[in-house]
Design a protein around this nucleic acid. Structure first.
Length: 406
DNA sequence: CTTCCACAGGAACCAGCGGACC
DNA sequence: GGTCCGCTGGTTCCTGTGGAAG
């Protein structure tokens, strides 16, 4: 037995495929970012005044996912801090990813942590945390640069009150200065902001265009050199990853994920080279994982509405909100649970759409009313699998399994 | 041109929970 | 121990609306 374990560990120690797998992880920021020179320059220019101890302008950064917004920001901040350190100036970056911390309190709490303040994860008011932050900033003079990544998630759910407060924070500071960098995936977000927030945050604006397939190839090649052993990649692997990601609006993160997972699959299978087939398998694995992740964390009635959607869209037909709701009711009654209202189901459908698990677009059928037409946006097999296991209701699992015959 | 369907989706509010503060 | 807090997952009530039918 122990030699089996040893074998596994031995194999894990000297990977045949990877030289350094971490270089492909989403949060790794390389020193070289191909095709982002002008964006790097612009951001550096904006932030440069902090080296003189002055407050840089606030910046608004837009661009679709995987266009290098976060990487560029981190790179520039890293260099800025290095430089400031050598000159003995205190510049403190505070990075908050709002996507998974999408309430005003949590964002404020993260900012507090970012300046070394311990705050409880609940119990205090937002105002109280804000006060403590202001207090701390006044006690420790310096330039602070707060990065709010993916702020769309905060604004969409909770409005821009917190943003407004943060843009005014300097009025309460005597010896410190705070700059804001707002990063967003959505270009339409700006229009929904309070004009005061808009003008303050948008003192500077940088737009990140999507990468094309050729540029993605450069990025992947650069990174593959660091991450893979020499000669393990088939020639068509990188072009394929680039092409697949280019189809999804030039998402570099997606391209890197594909490459990494393809490598992982090759390694798991004990193959010595990464091939096109590994990339195709990676695509499916990534999708399955995404679906599983999303579906598992859905609240109970979210899962049930999704189950109803699966049933009513069997055979690839499209359904309306009303049809999904009817099916949902039938389902819930059959397994004798309490049902939620139509309004809630409508809201859940909107949430599932946002999560990318279904597609729901509103249309008008004239005399026959306005509704959304709904279809699945993810692999039905994967959804059914996760729902069956997760709900643990035998009758429902059977229904879903039967719906699979289409 | 008007009507009217089948909803969309905003707004205000609520219960229950885990937790902080005094 | 009472009061306050935020978050989630709801409810109730509501106004708004694209476009086929009449």
């Amino acid at each position: 037995m122990s030699d089996v374990v040893d074998e596994i560990f031995d194999a894990a120690e000297k990977s045949r495929i990877f030289r350094d797998r971490e270089k492909l992880l989403p949060d790794y920021v390389p020193d070289v970012l191909p095709h982002r020179d002008s964006e790097i320059k612009r951001l550096a220019l904006v932030l440069a005044p902090s080296l003189r101890g002055e407050k840089p302008n606030n910046v608004f950064i837009y661009g679709l996912t995987g266009t290098g917004k976060t990487a560029v920001t981190r790179l520039v901040l890293r260099k800025l801090v290095e430089r400031a350190g050598r000159k003995g100036i205190r510049v403190t970056p505070i990075y908050v990813n709002v996507r998974h911390r999408d309430t005003p309190y949590r964002v404020m709490a993260d900012i507090a942590e970012g300046i070394g303040l311990r705050v409880p994860f609940t119990g205090l008011s937002v105002g109280e945390v804000y006060k403590r932050v202001v207090d701390r900033l006044n006690r420790r003079p310096g330039v602070y640069i707060i990065v709010l990544d993916e702020i769309d998630f905060l604004v969409r759910k909770h409005g821009d009150d917190l943003l407004y407060r943060l843009t005014r924070i300097n009025e309460e500071l005597s010896r410190s200065r705070v700059s804001l960098i707002g990063i967003t995936n959505s270009t339409t977000l700006v229009d929904s902001l309070d004009p005061r927030v808009k003008s303050s945050l948008g003192e500077e604006e940088i737009v990140f265009p999507p990468y094309n397939a050729e540029q993605l190839r450069d990025i992947l090649e650069e990174r593959a050199r660091l991450a893979f052993n020499d000669g393990v990649l088939d020639n068509d692997v990188i072009p394929l990853c680039a092409a697949l990601a280019a189809r999804e609006h030039g998402d570099a993160r997606r391209a890197l994920d594909l490459l990494r997972v393809a490598g992982e699959i090759a390694e798991r299978h004990g193959d010595s080279r990464v091939t096109k087939q590994h990339v195709m398998a990676a695509r499916m694995e990534i999708e399955r994982d995404r679906v599983a992740e999303v579906v598992k964390t859905l609240p109970l009635h979210g899962k049930l509405v999704l189950a109803a959607t699966v049933l009513v869209t069997a055979g690839g037909r499209k359904a309306t909100t009303g049809e999904v709701y009817d099916e949902y009711r039938r389902l819930v009654r059959r397994i004798s649970l309490e049902e939620v209202t139509f309004r809630r189901v409508s809201g859940i459908i909107a949430e599932l759409d946002m999560l990318g698990i279904i597609r729901a677009r509103t249309i008008s059928r004239g005399r026959y009313g306005k509704t959304r037409i709904i279809e699945l946006a993810a692999d039905p097999q994967a959804i059914i699998g996760v729902l069956s296991r997760d709900l643990g209701i035998e009758e429902l699992s059977r229904l879903l399994r039967d719906a699979r015959h289409w």
